[in-house]
């Protein structure tokens, strides 16, 4: 988020990152400071266009004097901070965060970098045992706060469950949900202000849900698909893309992405048309474009079929 303080009034000061002196600007986050000097910090729940919620805890770094690790995505820089991004504490936490996620969530469609981090941090989700059977339809949505079934530890509990397919535009495969809150933020004050979904329940039974788990067409959803656009793990996916993958014809090598402008109203949202076999299967919008920062409405996101 941009600061409201005029640039000329922002203080500049020094800190160290992994022992190297770095000059930063007041108001920056540790993550921004690190990226500025090409120090790589893995993130899952962070997105430039959303307010940091710092829940995945993958971006943690060590700050001298701090009892616990701190999340780089939300913590602002302070003068003379000594930041370590590669200490053994940091690496253990990152390894374990990835391990906890990979042992409980299907990450097979997550962004490519997740796979690279799994190797980099030597992640072994199988340490936690074989994965539990998927929950039945609606089972995870019926949970009562503060209660869970007795366990014997023979399997690692997961969030696996049937896919929710209740409209023609996109489907929700919460077996892939890492609860990064991005979709909730995009549906709420960070973009759409529709509030069709929120986090419900608590603990491991926490989930993204409409009220009483009603189907999307009954909910406040306006199918802008801004949640789909920010989902990092493929839990939210356009139906056309899903069916293309299911049909076995999915072929990333033959796909093209072309940037153009939405054919409907006068806002001028930029569209990225994802095309395979001369068919548009997905529409996204560049995050770094100042017109709408990646957000679209139902027409831009899903209203392209007239071309075909």
């Amino acid at each position: 988020m941009t600061s409201t303080v005029p640039i000329s009034l922002q203080r500049r000061f020094d800190l160290t990152i992994d022992g190297k002196d770095v000059t930063v600007t007041e108001g920056q986050t540790i993550l921004e400071a690190c990226r500025q000097v090409q120090v790589d910090i893995p993130t899952l729940c962070y997105l430039e266009t959303l307010t940091p919620v710092n829940v995945c805890r993958l971006c943690v770094v060590e700050v001298k004097g701090s009892r616990t690790l701190v999340s780089a995505c939300s913590r602002k820089v302070e003068p003379k901070m000594e930041i370590l991004t590669d200490s053994s504490r940091v690496n253990t936490s990152r390894r374990m965060v990835l391990e906890l996620l990979a042992s409980s969530v299907d990450l097979s469609l997550a962004d490519d970098e997740v796979g690279h981090w799994m190797q980099q941090y030597d992640v072994h989700p199988e340490r936690h045992g074989p994965q539990s059977d998927p929950a039945e339809e609606g089972e995870r949505d019926r949970g009562h706060a503060g209660e869970h079934k007795a366990i014997d530890g023979s399997t690692a509990e997961t969030v696996a469950q049937p896919i929710k397919r209740d409209n023609g535009q996109y489907l929700r495969d919460y077996s892939r949900c890492i609860l990064c809150y991005k979709c909730v933020e995009a549906c709420g004050v960070d973009a759409q202000n529709t509030f069709a979904i929120a986090v419900a329940g608590r603990g491991f039974e926490a989930r993204i849900s409409t009220e009483y788990n009603v189907a999307l067409p009954e909910s406040a959803c306006v199918y802008c698909g801004n949640c789909v656009a920010v989902c990092p793990t493929g839990a939210l996916m356009p139906t056309i893309e899903f069916d293309l993958r299911e049909s076995g014809k999915w072929d990333p090598k033959s796909q093209t992405v072309t940037q153009t402008v939405c054919p409907y109203c006068g806002v001028g949202c930029n569209l990225e048309l994802h095309v395979q076999d001369n068919q548009i299967f997905k529409v996204t919008s560049p995050l770094d474009h100042s017109t709408t920062s990646g957000n679209l409405c139902i027409k831009g996101r899903f209203g392209f079929e007239f071309v075909h």
Binding site: V55, G201, R202, F204, A206
Partner: peptide, 8 residues
């Protein structure tokens, strides 16, 4: 009693 917000 975990609120479920953070992964760890």
């Amino acid at each position: 009693e975990s609120c479920g917000q953070c992964v760890p």
